[in-house]
Simulated assay, not measured.
Amino acid sequence: MKKSQVTIKDIAKELGISASTVSRALKNHPDISQKTRDAVHELADKLNYQPNAVALSLKNSRTHTIGVIIPEIVHYFFSSVISGIEDVAYDAGFSVMICQSNEKYEREVTNAQTLLSNRVEGILVSVTKESDNFDHLKQFSRRGIPLIFFDRDAKEIEGDRILIDDIGAGYKATKHLIQSGCKRIAHLCGPQSLEIAQKRLQGYKQALEEAGITFIPEYVIDADNFELGKVATRQLLSLDTPPDGIFAVNDLTAIGAIKAVHNKGLHIPKDIAIVGFSSGRFSDITEPTLTSVDQHGYEMGAKATQLLIERIESEEDPETFVNHFIETNLIIRESSIHRD
């Protein structure tokens, strides 16, 4: 039978002293008398004591792990971000620990604690729709752990950010509808607690103003998923003067709008044109295919990870933080083709 490894507790029991005294004696701590130190070292040699390599590794070595907190893995945009993160991380010798908040603040807090407990060396975060307190994220900076925001951020926390120009993207989408002949354009927006939703709404308003089109408040409805997209579109189509174009905050909302328009017996884009946001895998298979803003999620994830690894490997604190914007482009498909 293999003999079990001698531990500090074994030495302590043999000498009639505490384990903490043995530990300090083995390190030649000055608070421990020379006599005790000699006795501990002599018995350790006799018993062939060896320090626990696993424990030392956990205490002293790096984990080469980065953490990710993401709102929804099932969302095409976020899944493409994860692909970019993993490709860059693994090429650099890092593992990735992914936590999903499911758009819940309390889950995001728990995610942060989990990543801290697992000793990640850096963290990438896209905050939830509910988040309005960020103490759980501030603790990473206090512990010297680099933190980078992507897509959605917390303005009150200093740090690096990899984002898109949401104002410009909202402007592009709305201007395209105007150029396609739309005069009455609605916006199915995200919750205004999110800065990205505020900015896309701002871009929408800018395009209307530039074109001399009056902004109509009842044309703006909070609807950021498939079901809400259907409900909001039914509401818009019931107006005395319904819109002839819709800019949706994301593709699922736009697909909900398409469903509602079809159910009403109307045609896209003849009766109403629709533009989505994120250009996900569904935009090519809807009927008609969906015009959408491409956020380039893979590029965002790759860029964020490259920067995070640079921060981890650097021996100095950054003098300035990076605000990097990924360029978006509009993928034009059948849902908004120009009408003669």
Rank of each mutant, 00 (worst) to 15 (best):
S131Q: 14
K138W: 09
G181N: 12
K104V: 07
T128N: 09
Q100P: 03
D166E: 10
N111C: 10
A186N: 05
D160K: 01
S126H: 01
V127D: 05
L137I: 00
V125A: 06
A154D: 13
A112C: 12
S117A: 10
N102K: 13
H176A: 10
E86Q: 13
G93C: 09
D165K: 05
Q179R: 09
I123V: 13
N118F: 06
E103Y: 01
K172C: 04
Y171T: 09
K175S: 02
D135R: 14
T174G: 11
E106N: 13
R107E: 11
I167T: 15
D135H: 14
Q139E: 15
S180A: 15
A169R: 05
I185E: 06
M97L: 15
D91V: 08
S117V: 01
R119M: 09
L124D: 03
I123K: 02
E121H: 12
Y171D: 12
M97Y: 09
E86M: 09
E121Y: 13
I167R: 15
R119T: 03
R143N: 15
Y105I: 03
D153H: 03
G170Q: 08
G159M: 08
C99I: 02
A89L: 13
D153N: 08
F140M: 04
T110F: 15
S83C: 11
E156G: 04
C182Y: 08
N111G: 00
R107D: 07
E103V: 02
R142D: 14
I98R: 04
D166V: 05
Q100A: 04
C182I: 09
D166K: 07
L163E: 14
L124I: 03
I148S: 00
F140Q: 05
L147W: 03
G159F: 08
Q139Y: 12
Y90D: 07
A173L: 11
G159W: 07
K172N: 05
E86F: 07
